[in-house]
Design a protein around this nucleic acid. Structure first.
Lengths: 219, 219
DNA sequence: CTAGAAAATGACCGTTAGTCATTTTGATGA
DNA sequence: TCATCAAAATGACTAACGGTCATTTTCTAG
């Protein structure tokens, strides 16, 4: 009989329903200003029940971020084989991130916000984080693309790949975190997010070329 | 009679003493885990008194960060005139930041942590923040240096200066924020902070050259 | 010595993440 | 149909902490 199966399915549905409620609340009021009671009301459940599905507010937030990450990965995969050239693919990945930020601004913010906090990697259960890092994620894809670019000669090879990929990843995530954390500074200088990302990519397109390679067409 | 003067002096001393206590507590237990009661005990004052000098926990943290910023600025000013060449001075500024992180790791962390949060610029009194931004700070110095570099021909001029300076600032602060927030990721890839900063500067030294300028000596 | 202002105190408040004893639900077997 | 029992759900409660304010203490001035 499929009773255990049905129960499992119901549990999964409720789990997703809580994430739905969490999204609605967090995206509307912002993470810090949202309370678990808010989420409970939205989900039409008691707060106690939430804690049967999530061990903490941060874990719920993590689940939302994971959804966002899946969406982003989808957009990246789609662009991954547009070009066979490594450096151009890299640019596509950058554009995927921009596209993501326009299509799903809320998930984008959740992801950026989460990236800029040191909480989860320490306080969340090791297992969950390990699992997340082990899975194919934006950093993995970046790494593969760099390998391709180094192989086809479109990307410099004098920086070890592990260093280069983490650096590029940190740069991109970093400027986005800074932009969301320090909007006032950027406004003061009349620089928008689009401009920031653009000039970043512009700098990169030159920086990644193998030395002495002529004929840059950054644009 | 100098009574008002003495009072003012005493007030300033107490103000500084509270920052001292705040530093001791925050640097030891971490900002989030530290309570205002902890600080009060360390300062040998009641909690209520703290709030006569600081309107919030964040404002106390801001004051600590300002101290750090002053130290950093000192290190930067010192290196500012080592070279008359713009691009080399820019590198010196990067190295000043590295030096700062080694000399004053606690202030460095406070600064980074503060940079990566969106709280203060919104919740702190406008005046305080405006004042901070108006003062000569790392971003100002960066801007000046870029101007010099563009003038002496050592830095590309095709990116507007406001965009370029904010981008470079966001990149550098960004990767440091990411490093402190996501140490686990970097450890997994065996990349240390020194390596991260190095490969970042390496990429930059190529990216900032005027197009078609030959003979790169990045090192 | 006293009046009164300025500084300091600490008991108290409101909020909220997280807990747990109790209740409800629903499957099972007689 | 009902009794039993485990799983699920509940919501009152706790602990912790940032921030407040009526009261007390300290200091100045006349």
């Amino acid at each position: 009989m499929g009773i255990t199966e049905r129960k499992e399915r119901e549990r999964e549905q409720r789990y997703q329903a809580i994430i739905d409620a969490g999204e609605k609340v967090f995206f509307t009021k912002g993470y810090e200003s949202s309370t678990m009671d808010d989420v409970a009301v939205e989900a039409e459940l008691s707060k106690g029940t939430l804690y049967l599905y999530f061990t903490s507010k941060d874990e719920l937030h993590f689940a939302i971020m994971e959804r966002g990450m899946k969406l982003l990965m989808g957009l990246m995969e789609k662009r991954l084989h547009i070009s066979s050239n490594g450096i151009e693919t890299l640019r596509e990945l950058g554009l995927a991130l921009v596209e993501f930020s326009n299509l799903h601004p809320n998930y984008f913010n959740a992801l950026i916000f989460f990236q800029g906090r040191d909480v989860e990697l320490q306080k969340l259960q090791e297992a969950k984080v390990k699992d997340f890092l082990a899975n194919r994620n934006s950093l993995t894809v970046l790494n593969e693309t760099l390998k391709r670019g180094m192989a086809d000669g479109s990307i410099r090879t004098d920086i070890p790949i592990a260093e280069l990929s983490t650096t590029l990843w940190a740069q991109m995530m970093g400027i986005l975190v800074m932009y969301s954390a320090k909007q006032a500074v950027f406004k003061l200088h009349h620089v928008g997010r689009e401009q920031l990302v653009n000039s970043h990519l512009m700098l990169l397109s030159d920086a990644l070329k193998p030395s002495h390679m002529e004929g840059a067409n950054h644009e």
